[in-house]
Design a protein around this nucleic acid. Sequence first.
DNA 1: AACACATTAGTGGTAAACCACTATAATTCT
DNA 2: AGAATTATAGTGGTTTACCACTAATGTGTT
Lengths: 219, 219
Amino acid sequence: MMEKTKKILIVDDHPLFRKGIKSVLQEDTGIEIIGEAGNSAEALNFIDKGNVDIIILDLQMPGMSGIELSKLIKSKYKNILIILLTMHKDERIFNNSLEYGLDAYILKENAVDEVLKAVHVVADGNFYLSPSMSEYMIQKSMKQKKLADENPGIKNLTEKEKEILNMISQNRTTREIAESFFVSYKTIENHRANICKKLNISGCNALLKFIIENKTLLS
Amino acid sequence: MMEKTKKILIVDDHPLFRKGIKSVLQEDTGIEIIGEAGNSAEALNFIDKGNVDIIILDLQMPGMSGIELSKLIKSKYKNILIILLTMHKDERIFNNSLEYGLDAYILKENAVDEVLKAVHVVADGNFYLSPSMSEYMIQKSMKQKKLADENPGIKNLTEKEKEILNMISQNRTTREIAESFFVSYKTIENHRANICKKLNISGCNALLKFIIENKTLLS
DNA sequence: AACACATTAGTGGTAAACCACTATAATTCT
DNA sequence: AGAATTATAGTGGTTTACCACTAATGTGTT
């Protein structure tokens, strides 16, 4: 099987870091580093010349951030693959990584051959994620699970209460919910109060707030 | 390089489907199918005997669902890898896939060799996602982006207004926000009103509701 | 039969958020 | 210098949501 050489552009504001990536990728004969850029403007200039297959991109850069740059690239060049490098386990960026058009999310703290692995995975049309990042997410979910076990309120809710909670999360007011169920406004208020008791929460907009914080818990 | 044989368990309630997966995987000498199960209980029994490396798991099953099963497996056996097969593009499951402990998310509509690909990717310690699923997510993000462009309100917000919106999203009340800024309650109320005008929203809890619906848009 | 619980509905009150204004000082842009 | 915007602060009023009760009806359990 004859593979096409992958043409790669490295975008990072630290020359030493670029050097590091280069030395890792150089060993692979299927990879050709065709350019480097120290900031987003340089990167865009280079990309406009065409030819780039994969971009290895640092998140933290002066000026335009890696995320903004990747959005821009993906909107202009659908076929360019983007590998994002970052220092931090940023959940929000990871959660939106696909929507940002990213093809890989790599933590800099990880082993050097991560980059090489990622290049092959994304070139194969797949999404790559640093194992330590997924590890972290799993850990986080364990904590959340524990939290859910400590707050057993959710599973004590009746079907009707769950339905109401669901409608609240869809931005319906108590009155609207009452109307759609053909019951009194006061009935729904009672349900809300009961739900709050079961969930052990109180205060203004307590339920709406609870939903924001526990969206994942409800599914 | 001598690879270890991957021992696989297939869990699906349709025997014909299991057969299909088997015939695909059989061609690979590095893979050994050591068992099949038609439901979650059977699967758990088999797993308890040890030996399983990777589980190929159907989401839709009578009784315990694939998600519940995978949570259970991951909590007991940290090292077993799970490949989830599903009929539908279920965003919610995908978004929580890592928290559920999944290692791959494959759509049944995809080509048969997806499963084979996924086995290798997850065995390599990486997360695998059906390209058509990521395609779908990107498409969805394009729509969302378009929506954001049509509602240009967000980028018209001043720094202070963004700060306030952020604090609202952190469940702080108007009074709390006022206190932390050492300004009057009424000032923050004015800011809220201005934000609402810019975002073209109105009604009770409008801002909190807006945040729920546009969480991704704000980042 | 007695009990727990869910669902229904009510009274009366408080707090938070929103709505529609007005108004002033500071800043920024032209 | 003048205009627009931002940040500040206020009056007065409405709606929504929460809080603390009471209470009737039905349903299912023991």
